[in-house]
């Protein structure tokens, strides 16, 4: 699956590592519940617990988008 020449395969490995990091970041954010299980600061009357998690959903979308873009540029499936 990985590229043919050694150079390509090295590049592919770097991309896989970067993708793994991008995917893990949101998990770390969400698992650290005590960091966001509180009321203030509120936004529009909504407690921190709610809006912080929602913000992370949007961030996850961006991170996953970058990950997908990086993987799509790898010429593994042609």
């Amino acid at each position: 699956m990985v590229g043919n020449a050694g150079e390509n395969s090295k590049k592919a490995t770097r991309i896989y590592i970067a993708v793994a990091i991008l995917l893990i970041i949101p998990f770390i954010a969400y698992v650290l519940l005590p960091t966001y299980d509180r009321i203030s600061p509120k936004v529009a009357g909504i407690s921190f617990f709610y809006w912080y998690q929602t913000l992370w959903l949007a961030i996850s979308g961006v991170l996953f988008g970058i990950a997908a873009y990086m993987l799509n540029r790898l010429k593994e499936e042609s």
């Binding site: 709610y50 929602t54 959903l57 949007a58 979308g61 996953f64 988008g65 997908a68 799509n72 499936e77």
Partner: peptide, 24 residues
């Protein structure tokens, strides 16, 4: 193709923002 799978999957968290609105 696999790019369609990847792209659509990566964009789905954005779609999920509505789920938060529903919760509220």
């Amino acid at each position: 193709n696999v790019k369609a799978v990847r792209f659509s999957t990566a964009m789905l968290p954005i779609y999920g923002l509505g789920l938060f609105l529903l919760t509220i």
